[in-house]
Design a binder for these strands. Structure first.
Lengths: 222, 222
DNA sequence: TAATCATTCAAGTAATTGCTTGAATGATAG
DNA sequence: CTATCATTCAAGCAATTACTTGAATGATTA
C-alpha cells in the first residue's frame, strides 16, 4: 500500500476537522442546525455569495457533515447527523474554557464585569412547567417558525428595544437563540439587565434543546 | 469596532478546529493523551522532525488545546484539559459514521468482511472483575508504564506474534491501545481471530478509560 | 566560563485554501 | 422547445500553511 492505514485514517479525521476550520462553514452549520435549507437561503443568511456558499457546502458534504437532496430546482442541504451539534458545542466549550480572547468577547457582550451564568436547559424546563418564567426566542421569524421551545415568544433584538417598556419588570426572563455560536441571546440579556430585568441566557440554543429530546413546536408566533 | 464580535468569536472557534485539521497534530494529541512528554520524545514517537513538532505543538498551544512548562532543558507539553479527549473521540465517531473511506480502512484492518463489534468499557470492567477475560495492552512499553488498565498484559504486535502459541486458545481476549486513532488493537485482534481466538477490541483506549474515572495503574510489566 | 543539549526562531519553498468572476448544468414553467 | 431560476463548475488571484534548513536562545553541566 502506498500509505499506511494509520496515515490514511488520520487524513480522514483531519478532513472532518478541516471542515470545521473556517468561520464561513461554522456559520453554515449553525444555520443548518436550525433547519435544513436551500443554498440561496443559506447564502443570504450568512452573507456569503451563492457560489461561495455552494463551495463551502460541498466541502462540508465531502467531510460527511451534511447531505443534500434536490427539491425542484433547489438543492436542500441538511445536517447528516445530530452528533454535529454536539461537535459544534464541544468546540465552543473548548474555546471558551481555554482561550482568553473568547471570554473577553463574551464578557464584553454582557456589558457587565462578568457575564451572568446561563440557566441549564433542565432547569429551564422545570421553571417553564411551573409557569415561572417568560421565555424569549431571539431569532428571525422564519427560524422560529421552523421550530421553537413551547411557550417561547419570538422577538428580534429590534423588537426587544421597542417592546421593553411593555414587559413586566418583575418577570423572570430567559432568552435563547441559535446555539453556542449565536450572540443574540447574549445581547438580549444585556439589554434586559441594563433595564433592571432579572434576565438570563439559556445554555445552548434551540438545536441543543431539541437534541435533549425535549418538545419543540413549529409555526408562526401569534 | 473593526470586526463584529460574532465574527471574532467564529474566528476563535475556527482556530480550535484548525488545530485539529492536520494529521501531524492529531498524532501529537493522541500521544499527549497517553501522557505528557517533551518535544523530542513526541517528535520521535510521531516521526516528525523536532523543529516541525515544535511548531505544531505551538499551534496547539495557541488554540488552547495544550500547555507547556519547562523542566530543566526540556519543555514538557501536556493536554490543557481532558475535554480534548472527548473532542478527538467525537471527531473519529463522526468520521466513522459518515465517511465510507474510514469504514473501508477499518474493515480492511480486521481481515474479515465486517469488523467485530468492540466491547464497551463498562462491559469490560464487569468481565474483568469476574476474572473472565485476558486483557492485552498493545502499546509501547513506556506508554504502558505511564498508565494502564489494572490486570492488563503489555504486548506489542511483535510480541504478540511471538507469544501467540503460548496463549490459552480458549481464553476470551480483549485488546486496547491508545484510543480511536490507534490501530494497534485492531491489528492485534485481527491476528488473534485469524488464529482462532475469541478476541475483541475495547471501545476507545486508555485515555477514554481514564476519563471514565476507572482505575489506572502505573509501572513496568512484570 | 565554556560546552552541551533541547527547543525555538527565521527564512524559503511548494502546495493548499478562500474568494471572486463568469460560464455551464439541471430542473421547471410557459 | 425555450426561457428562467438555482446551483455548480472552472479559472485566477491573494493569502495561508506545512515542511525544511540552519541559526539563535535558554538552561544545565563540566
Amino acid at each position: 500500500m502506498s500509505t499506511s492505514p494509520k496515515q490514511a485514517l488520520l487524513k480522514e479525521y483531519a478532513l472532518v476537522a478541516q471542515a470545521l476550520a473556517a468561520p464561513a462553514r461554522l456559520m453554515l452549520l449553525e444555520q443548518l442546525a436550525q433547519s435544513e435549507a436551500a443554498v440561496e437561503v443559506l447564502a443570504r443568511k450568512t452573507g456569503l455569495t451563492v457560489a461561495n456558499a455552494s463551495q463551502h457546502l460541498q466541502q462540508l458534504r465531502r467531510a460527511g457533515l451534511v447531505t443534500s437532496r434536490r427539491a425542484g430546482k433547489a438543492v436542500i442541504y441538511r445536517l447528516q447527523n445530530s452528533r454535529s451539534i454536539a461537535l459544534l458545542g464541544l468546540l465552543s466549550e473548548m474555546a471558551e474554557a481555554n482561550l482568553a480572547q473568547v471570554t473577553d468577547i463574551l464578557d464584553g457582550l454582557s456589558g457587565e464585569a462578568t457575564a451572568p451564568e446561563p440557566i441549564t436547559r433542565a432547569d429551564l424546563a422545570e421553571r417553564l412547567a411551573a409557569g415561572a418564567v417568560t421565555l424569549l426566542d431571539i431569532r428571525p421569524e422564519d427560524e422560529f417558525a421552523a421550530g421553537h421551545i413551547p411557550g417561547a415568544c419570538n422577538m428580534t433584538l429590534a423588537d426587544l428595544d421597542r417592546l421593553l417598556p411593555t414587559l413586566d419588570p418583575k418577570a423572570e426572563v430567559v432568552a435563547y437563540c441559535r446555539g453556542p455560536y449565536c450572540i443574540y441571546a447574549h445581547q438580549a440579556v444585556a439589554r434586559l439587565r441594563q433595564n433592571g430585568f432579572n434576565a438570563r441566557r439559556m445554555q445552548g440554543g434551540l438545536p441543543e434543546w431539541r437534541e435533549d429530546g425535549r418538545g419543540v413546536c413549529t409555526g408562526q408566533s401569534t
